[in-house]
């Protein structure tokens, strides 16, 4: 069971929880399982083509998945998957 950190904006979908535990071997599998466990996440995280929305950032153990294997990045029992809103800055 990977731990998924839920940002404030999406906690209405997780019953207010900031963290949930979800099964899955990859980021994609975890996020799909998240939709099954808590319906509503899917349309918020993925666009109409099934791609991760471009302002949704996902970190695996504090590393942006775009520096890893993208949504195919492997996830283990001890992994923390963080969903992070669009970066600001600049």
């Amino acid at each position: 069971m990977a731990t998924v950190r839920i940002p404030t904006q999406l906690r209405e979908l997780s019953g207010g929880a900031g963290e949930v535990t979800i099964d899955g071997g990859t980021v994609q599998a975890v996020l799909e399982a998240l939709e099954v466990a808590h319906p509503g996440f899917g349309e918020r995280l993925f666009d109409g083509d099934g791609k991760l929305r471009r302002f949704v950032n996902v970190f695996v153990d504090d590393e942006d998945i775009r520096f890893l294997g993208g949504v195919d990045t492997e996830v283990t029992e001890r992994t923390v998957v963080s969903i992070v809103p669009a970066v600001a800055g600049g």
Binding site: Q9, R44, R53, F55, V56, P85, A86, A88
Partner: peptide
């Protein structure tokens, strides 16, 4: 600063 729906700016 972010959209609550899609996280856009």
């Amino acid at each position: 600063y972010t959209c609550e729906w899609c996280f856009g700016p």
